Amino acid sequence: MHLTILHVSQPVDGGVARVVTDLVRGQRAAGHRVLVACPPGGRLGPEAVAAGAESLDWPARRSPGPSVTAETARLRRLVQQVAPDLVHLHSAKAGLAGRLAVRGRLPTVFQPHAWSFAAATGSLATASIRWERYATRWASSVLCVSEQEQLDGEAVGVEAAFTVVPNGVDLAHYAPAERRAARLSLGLDLSEPLAVCVGRLCRQKGQDLLLAAWPAVLRRVPTARLALVGGGPDAQALAAQARALPEPYRVRLTGDVPDPRPWLAAADLVVLPSRWEGMALAPLEAMAMARPVLLADVPGAREQLPPAQREGGLIPVNDPAALTNALAAALSEPLDCAQRGVAARGWVTGRHDIRTVVARVSELYQKSIIAGQSTPRVPARI
């Protein structure tokens, strides 16, 4: 059965955009008509079109606010024009406007990509939890990318038809590459230990914690280098933080790059000290390229690491001292890093192939449509 699938997404960059694009590519290969509604600018629109989607202009701010009413109305009109068989909403803002626009009249999959209340504090966190409890009535399924993400939703009283499908990567695209060639192409020293952080420059990803830990790392591994790969709202603040480090601070901020693979290939270690996640995509891409990772123990991190690497590959959230110790220990042992990278590639190959993700999401769509139910019957908890 060929479907008309409408993906709605805000944000338009980072891991969410890559997840949407990968789904588009797999769904188009299966013969479905796929449309992507998203704000202009960013990578998602052009990359989704390149993957075979039809692009719909949906201006929307990233954060909730007075603009939600107009954003919801615009999205409602788009849904009426397209008449999709199913709507797939990605991340908190699309989940907010999309569920208000559709209200369960069509099969609707909501994928948080990390819960909105995980990023909030105080009254905003309370309001986010109340909204998620209420809005679950308008989703055929809540698609989580890790078991912990589901557990976190259940812990605050979200009663939904949950489905867990871990994130995946294109194993052919993110294939192991020769470290020496990558370093030469980037103008990097061939022998210096290199830690790389790939991700949007923002509070969520914790690059500020990494910079805070870096001077202590250098005292233990003086030749080490750090690269922050990506752009984002905190780019200027992080650049200033790096410049304020004692000389020589040996940190490079690359800005946004069209392809992170050369940096992943050049790394001895890929590090992501996030404050919250659902299941970050960059670590999976790194492991697919046979690079070991060091992660904060946020939702999804433990599940995406090989069991034998969880003890040394996970650190407590928001803990610069633990980050310092783990970074210094790893960068002091490049041969061990290389061995862990090979094992990580095998783990990702067996558990995080994007083809498996596309197939499982397709099964979820078919179940929602064939069952003839647009929403689960769950009690409303406010």
Rank of each mutant, 00 (worst) to 15 (best):
T4A: 09
H7S: 07
P11I: 08
V12D: 10
G15P: 07
R18I: 07
R28Q: 09
R33W: 00
V36L: 09
P39D: 08
A51F: 10
A51R: 07
A51L: 06
A53Y: 01
E54T: 13
D57S: 15
W58R: 05
S67L: 11
V68I: 15
T69W: 15
T72P: 12
L78W: 07
A83V: 12
A92N: 05
G98I: 12
R99T: 10
R105Q: 14
P107L: 11
T108W: 03
P112I: 09
H113C: 10
A114P: 03
S116K: 04
A127F: 06
S128N: 15
T136V: 15
W138R: 09
S141A: 15
S141C: 13
S141L: 00
V142D: 05
L151V: 12
A155K: 12
V158F: 04
V158K: 04
A161C: 13
F162C: 02
N167W: 06
A172R: 15
Y174P: 00
P176D: 05
A177N: 03
R180E: 14
A182L: 08
L186G: 00
D189E: 14
L190I: 10
S191G: 12
E192A: 15
L194G: 08
A195W: 00
V196M: 10
L201W: 00
Q204L: 08
K205M: 09
Q207A: 03
D208F: 02
A213H: 02
P215G: 10
R219L: 12
R220I: 02
T223C: 10
A224K: 06
L226H: 06
V229G: 00
G230E: 07
P233L: 07
A237F: 06
A240T: 15
A242W: 14
A242M: 11
R243T: 14
E247S: 15
E247V: 09
P248Q: 06
R250S: 11
L253P: 00
D256V: 01
V257P: 07
V257Q: 14
P258E: 03
D259V: 09
P262G: 02
D268C: 10
V270N: 04
V271N: 05
A290H: 04
A290Y: 03
P292K: 04
V293Q: 00
V293A: 13
L294K: 03
A296C: 11
D297Q: 13
D297W: 08
P306V: 05
Q309R: 06
G312L: 07
G313V: 06
P316K: 11
P320H: 10
A322W: 05
L323A: 03
T324A: 05
E333T: 14
P334Y: 05
D336M: 12
C337L: 08
A338P: 02
G341S: 04
V342E: 12
V342F: 06
A343N: 03
R351Y: 06
R351G: 08
I354D: 01
V357Q: 04
R360M: 09
S362V: 01
S374F: 10
S374D: 10
T375D: 03
R381V: 13
